[in-house]
């Protein structure tokens, strides 16, 4: 009895399992072959903070106030204020560095920014063989913003 029961159970398991996998064969595959075929990003998905460029003036929105620097938990942002020859502060950053190797993509810097100067990009392929290459300067950050923008506009309003 016990033996027959086990034979019956095993047979049933095989039939059920095969039925499920066979049925799946009739469906379209769900796999995306990633490097060749890139799935679209969801609206609002984020990778790293980048600097926004003002459409009209072509300058950065950033005024170098340093709030994002303070809000960043792993302190991966470093800003130095621009100065003119007389030592007066100018409302843009002399340097703006972002250490990608420490960034944890938490969005706190964007929320801290009162000037709408930062935005989370949706560019993820930023890998590199050298750690130094992961420190992005303000020019690079603005470049990434430009490439990520197309995706964002296509996806509708930003979150």
């Amino acid at each position: 009895m016990a033996l027959w029961d086990r034979v019956w159970q095993t047979g049933k398991s095989m039939v059920v399992g095969h039925a499920i996998t066979m049925r799946e064969m009739l469906h379209k595959p769900v796999t995306v072959r990633y490097p060749e075929e890139k799935p679209p990003f969801e609206r609002g998905s984020r990778s790293v903070p980048v600097l926004k460029v003002n459409e009209e003036s072509g300058r950065l929105n950033c005024v170098s106030c340093g709030l994002c620097e303070r809000a960043c938990p792993p302190s991966c942002i470093e800003i130095t204020q621009a100065m003119d020859e007389k030592g007066r502060k100018k409302p843009w950053p002399e340097t703006f560095q972002l250490d990608l190797s420490h960034c944890m993509v938490c969005n706190l810097c964007v929320e801290a920014c009162p000037f709408d100067a930062l935005e989370m990009a949706d560019v993820v392929e930023l890998g590199s063989y050298q750690v130094q290459d992961l420190i992005l300067q303000k020019g690079q950050l603005a470049e990434i913003w430009k490439t990520s923008r197309a995706l964002r506009v296509a996806g509708g309003e930003r979150l």
Binding site: L67, L108, E111, A112, P114, E157, R158, L159
Partner: peptide, 19 residues
């Protein structure tokens, strides 16, 4: 509702300077 701009926390305050 979708535009979460008004839902983002008010982290812009001056108090952060005292951190």
């Amino acid at each position: 509702m979708a535009g979460g701009k008004d839902a983002t926390p008010d982290a812009t305050g001056r108090g952060a300077a005292a951190g």
